[in-house]
Amino acid sequence: MHLPKNAHVALVDGENFVVMRNGGAPLEPKLDRSEKPDLSASNYSAGVKHQDDAGQALGRTDLEELAHGAAAAAWLNAKAVAGEIDDILVIADPKTLGEMRRHYHTELEKRLVGEIAKTLTGEPTKRIEQIIADA
C-alpha cells in the first residue's frame, strides 16, 4: 500500500484507539505514535441494528464496542473537518470498521487513503508497518 509521508494511521478496535504517523517513505512506512485519544462512547445509535436477543446472547454484539467505533469515527471526523488530517489510513477489526464507515463525514472520506479490516491494536509497530507495506 502506498502510504504518504506524514499520513495518519488510526488503529481501532472495540476498546482501543491509537493514532500514529508515517515518518517513512510511501512504500516503506515507519510509524511513530502520535496520540492516544481519550474517547467517551456516547453514540449508542450504533447498536440499533444489533438489538436482536440472539446476537447479544451469543456474544456477537457488544454495544459498548460499537459505540467506541462510532466515537473513534467522530474524533477522526472532527480532525478532518478542522484540517488537522490530510491523509488517513484506518485499520480496525471488521465489526468496528463496518460501524465506523456508517459515521464517516465526507471530509474524512476525502482524506481516506485506505482501510485494512484487521485487528492490529496491541501488535508490534514493525508488524503493523509490514502489513501496511504488503497491503
Rank of each mutant, 00 (worst) to 15 (best):
E15T: 13
P4H: 05
A46K: 01
A46P: 01
P124V: 05
E123A: 15
E107C: 08
Q51C: 15
D52A: 13
G59N: 13
E123V: 10
D62T: 07
N43D: 15
G114F: 00
L58D: 13
E35P: 01
S45Y: 11
I85P: 03
G14D: 08
E109D: 10
P26E: 03
A25W: 09
K126R: 10
G69C: 02
R111E: 12
A133Q: 06
A71P: 09
G23D: 09
D134V: 00
T106H: 13
A117N: 04
G24Y: 11
I85M: 04
I116L: 04
K118S: 05
A46I: 06
K30M: 10
I88D: 06
G14S: 11
D38A: 11
K95Q: 07
P29H: 04
V90C: 07
A25Q: 14
H50K: 15
Q130W: 03
E99F: 03
R101A: 08
G55M: 12
G59P: 09
D32R: 15
P26L: 05
W75A: 09
I85R: 01
G122D: 00
L108H: 00
N43Q: 08
E28T: 04
I88P: 02
S40P: 01
A82H: 02
G122Y: 04
E99C: 10
L39I: 01
R127G: 03
D53P: 14
A92V: 07
L66K: 00
K110H: 10
L120P: 03
P124Q: 05
K118V: 14
D32G: 14
L120T: 05
G14M: 08
Q51G: 15
K79I: 06
N77V: 02
A73C: 07
A57P: 11
P26A: 01
G122V: 08
T125C: 09
Y104I: 04
G83Y: 13
L58A: 13
L108P: 03
T96Q: 02
A25L: 15
R127W: 10
G55T: 07
L112A: 06
P124K: 12
I88E: 00
N16A: 14
T61D: 04
A57G: 13
L66V: 12
S34E: 12
L76R: 03
R21E: 11
Q51Y: 14
V9L: 06
I88Q: 04
K79E: 15
A67M: 00
T61Y: 12
V18L: 07
R127V: 15
W75M: 06
T119D: 14
L27V: 10
E123Y: 08
I91H: 02
G24A: 07
P29A: 06
R21P: 08
A25Y: 14
P37F: 02
D32S: 14
K49G: 06
E65A: 15
R102V: 10
I116E: 06
K95L: 13
E109G: 05
S42D: 13
T119S: 15
L58H: 12
A46V: 10
V9K: 00
D93E: 13
A57W: 04
H8W: 05
